[in-house]
Design a binder for these strands. Structure first.
Length: 803
RNA sequence: GCCGCUGUGGCGGAAUUAGGCAGACGCAGUGGACUUAAAAUCCACCGGUAGCAAUACUGUACCGGUUCAAAUCCGGUCAGCGGCACCA
């Protein structure tokens, strides 16, 4: 073996070898158990890989490599989530076609990925902007459309002033654009919507059957926001019925007024009867101009206008009560109208105080003079007719039955989740394959045989100032014939959001070249579901929810074979710059991992990325830290010099080896890569101190190291005549050998350490006690005092309690 | 406001699953060896206080509790992070 660890040459050699020999190509092989490992495919940005990418990729690579050595047939694919705004914006600024920008970026990313030695199956590479791929994205949209789950609707949407594009609710963070942090305003537009709300319950229930970290489960449940209550009908003096949703039907007797959203249709319905209609319309107009963010600022004082001329009747008390409009009631949730119970809802309480409305106590237990009493555990019903004296849960149940019997209302479950705003007025996305036919007076699906509906070439892909898609000016694209009646029709010019392509890519990986179906049954049955999917926390309410929705839809129409796409999901922590801030070009704290590879080699960078800290937690980058990992590999390389042929080997080292096998094996499964690496470092320190290692032990050690640092392991393995390390079996450990015969026992008196003594493992308790008393320091501490208790923990410690 | 998580040396972090030697492993630092010199490498030290030292005391955000024994369990407080948030 060469005396110098020439990582550049070694890494190139093995990367070429793996490529040329198709080492990591996965084929269906029913004789082996399958394992589908998935990472979130990258968005190929112009900046190339940054230090954050290699963390999750290396982690799944370690798991994939270990699984292969454990006899699994592993699918570990890679692809490109390449549609999207940054590419389009870059293209506009630099006057290069987005397609060209994407091609260049993918080329760069591919090179960078290959230099890390990740064991992807490159033959299965997918690219969401490739027509062979987006043909099937469009096909899935058509299935949604045909099943009534895609519809176009005029509605107020979130509009990013910077990106000049519509945003889904999930893309608005604290009133700002998730991507560019630009201002988000409300704009009424006609938009394609997907009925994700129909799957709200399934999306909650499905979480029971998968292995997700609790923080992800919680945020998905939070986002879907299920609540149970009732809808109640209030008759009005106009002879119609105003329906409200409430989670507290038990407080019905305490409802002293009602509030409807400013956009509620009844405002205009009642316009003729409203004495103060001008004032009312004025308020509604102002509310409409506010962004959702402004409207929902909590600290804000309550405002509203009473509808003079119309009132409602509380169905429980039969009393007439006033109706208000106020922007604290949202048209988009429940029925857009509420029964206000100021005694037991803080918002209603504040509103009632401001407008001097009566506050009636119907649940006893608080002080409604000071604030609303919202506790549902302690209170007892009062002033509530036939439910007086009941506790809150009893009252809820009884009033629900009463509502049903009297026909005044019914049980109801509501969700905060909204339908998914699915169209974008931009160029660089999948065209939505529908046409508007004036004669048919409807949207008509493009026939599947005409897919892919190609994104046309345009000269100008700038979004229009009026918010229309760049495609809207392209006559040759727009004008077409109606597939239904053959008459003239116009194509939809909006495109799909970036989340479309990533909502099903894991399915395509199973069968990426299929031109007949989006994926074959055979591939589905063998590879799906994904066994282990690792990704970022930032995708919990976007990508993860969207792709589960699409999967559940496809399951419902028998196109996939499992109700959930991902069996196990884990999430890595972000990597911050050396200054502890989020890495960004503008801050200048980004780290180029490929420059580091040139300096210390990919194996060192891989190790450092895994050693940096708890995989699930945020970590701060420290370039100096890579040095420690490089030193470890240098010492590894040096082991060849102290290699002995013979079997002479200390029992102690043998035991350490088995313990390390156990530790590394277990830690990989729990993604505790940092401690797995620490264990290997400890072992190598021990070996170096020992001064020699035999061939069998070094061989085992190289196998253990190979998922983490595959290049150096492959090279040493081959050079020492062991063959190909990736063809080896993952080593087993012997639990008996993990325990070394000689164990150090801690000796305590009153819980304080007085000394240590060596004992045989599994030694008799009496023997340990005897050894303790024989210890000088223990003897001194015990002498002349009364022994109250003697505690002996086998193989660990002796504690003598004295008075 | 609701839900969840976290708090350990100069730094990243280990030990928390099941209470049992706090600080593994690494970085940085200090002293030494090698070298004309530097880098690299090797050896030693490296929470705080006192001490030449052995050692003693103290120490895991803070206060308290359980226990022979608490970073770990329980109650409370403070700080930070994440999700939801006028959702009726």
């Amino acid at each position: 073996m060469d005396s110098k660890y020439d990582f550049t040459a070694i890494e190139k050699k093995w990367q070429d070898y793996w490529d040329e020999n198709s080492t990591f190509h996965a084929e269906i092989d029913k004789s082996k158990p399958k394992f589908y490992a998935l990472i979130e495919f990258p968005y190929p940005s112009g900046q190339g890989l940054h230090a954050g990418h290699p963390r999750p990729y290396t982690a799944m690579d370690i798991i994939a490599r270990k699984r292969r050595m454990q006899g699994y047939n592993v699918l570990f694919p890679i692809g490109w989530d390449a549609f999207g705004l940054p590419t389009e914006n870059f293209a506009i600024q630099n006057k290069i076609h987005p397609k060209t920008v994407t091609e260049n970026n993918i080329k760069k990313f591919t090179e960078q990925c290959k230099s890390f030695g990740w064991s992807f199956d490159w033959r299965r590479e997918v690219d969401t902007t490739n027509p062979d791929y987006y043909k099937w994205t469009q096909w899935i949209f058509l299935q949604l459309f045909k099943n009534g789950l895609a519809y176009k609707k005029e509605m107020a949407v979130n509009w990013c002033m910077e990106c000049k594009v519509v945003l889904a609710n999930e893309e608005v963070v604290n009133g700002a654009c998730e991507r560019c942090t630009g201002e988000v305003v409300r704009k009424v537009k006609s938009q394609w919507m997907l009925k994700i709300t129909e799957f709200a319950q399934q999306l909650i229930d499905g979480l029971e059957d998968v292995d997700y970290p609790s923080r992800i489960t919680y945020s998905q449940i939070n986002w879907i926001g299920r609540s149970t209550g009732a809808e109640v009908d209030f008759k009005t003096t106009e002879g119609d019925v105003l329906r409200v949703y409430t989670t507290r039907p038990d407080t019905l007797f305490g409802s002293t007024y009602m509030v409807i959203a400013p956009e509620h249709p009844y405002v205009e319905k009642w316009a003729d009867k409203l004495i103060n209609i001008t004032e009312v319309r004025d308020y509604a107009d102002k509310a409409a101009r506010k962004s959702d963010f402004e409207r929902s600022e909590i600290a804000k004082e309550k405002s509203g206008v009473m509808l003079k001329g119309v009132s409602a009747v509380n169905p429980a008390t039969e009393r007439e009560i006033p109706v208000f409009i106020s922007d604290y009631v949202l048209m988009s949730y429940g029925t857009g109208a509420i029964m206000a119970v100021p005694g037991h809802d803080q918002r209603d309480w504040e509103f009632a105080k401001k407008f001097n409305l009566p506050i009636i106590e119907v649940v006893k237990g608080g002080n409604i003079e000071k604030e609303a009493f919202t506790d549902t555990e302690e209170g007892v019903m009062v002033n509530s007719g036939f439910i007086d004296g009941l506790n809150v849960p009893e009252a809820k149940s009884k009033i629900k039955s009463w509502l049903k019997e009297t026909g005044k209302g019914e049980k109801k479950i509501n969700y905060k989740l909204r339908d998914w705003v699915f169209s974008r007025q931009r160029y660089w996305g999948e065209p939505i394959p529908v046409v508007w036919c004036e004669a048919c007076n409807d949207w008509i699906a493009v026939p599947e045989s005409q897919l892919p509906l190609m994104l046309p070439e345009v000269d100008n892909y700038m979004p229009a100032e009026n918010g229309e898609s760049p495609l809207s000016t392209l006559e040759s694209f727009i004008n077409t014939v109606c597939p239904a009646c053959g008459g003239p029709a116009k194509r939809e010019t909006d495109t799909m959001p970036q989340w479309a392509g990533s909502s099903w890519y894991y399915l395509r990986y199973a069968d990426p070249l299929n031109d007949k179906e989006f994926v074959s049954n055979e591939a589905l049955e063998y590879w799906l579901p994904v066994d282990w999917y690792n990704g970022g926390m930032e995708h919990t309410t976007l990508h993860l929810l969207y792709s589960r929705f699409w999967h559940k839809f496809l399951f419902g129409i028998d196109k996939v074979n499992t109700p959930e796409p991902y069996l196990k999901r884990t999430a890595h922590g972000m990597i911050l710059g050396e200054d502890g801030q989020k890495m960004s070009k503008s801050r200048g704290n980004t780290v180029d991992p490929n420059a580091l590879i040139a300096e210390t080699g990919a194996d060192s960078v891989r190790l450092y990325e895994m050693f940096i800290g708890d995989f699930e937690k945020t970590a701060t980058w420290n370039t100096a830290g890579v040095k420690g990992c490089k030193r470890f590999l240098d010492r590894m390389w040096g082991l060849a010099d102290i290699l002995t042929d013979g079997g002479e080997y200390s029992e102690k080292l043998c035991s350490s080896m088995h313990r390390t096998i156990r530790k590394v094996s277990e830690d990989i499964e729990q993604m505790k890569f940092n401690t797995a690496i620490a264990a290997m470092m400890t072992l190598i320190n021990e070996i170096c101190a020992n001064g020699r290692i035999n061939r069998a032990e070094l061989k085992t050690f190289l196998i253990l190291l190979s998922p983490f640092a595959p290049h150096i392991s492959s090279e040493m393995f081959e050079a020492l005549g062991f063959g190909l390390v990736h063809e080896e079996q993952w080593p087993d450990f012997d639990p008996e050998l993990c325990v070394f015969n000689e164990i150090e026992i801690v000796l305590q008196v009153n819980g304080k350490i007085k000394g240590r003594v060596m004992a045989e493992s599994g030694a008799d308790k009496n023997a340990l006690l005897k050894a303790a008393y024989e210890n000088e320091a223990v003897g001194a501490a015990v002498s002349g005092r009364e022994v109250v208790k003697e505690i002996v923990v086998s193989d660990k410690l002796v504690n003598i309690v004295v008075k």
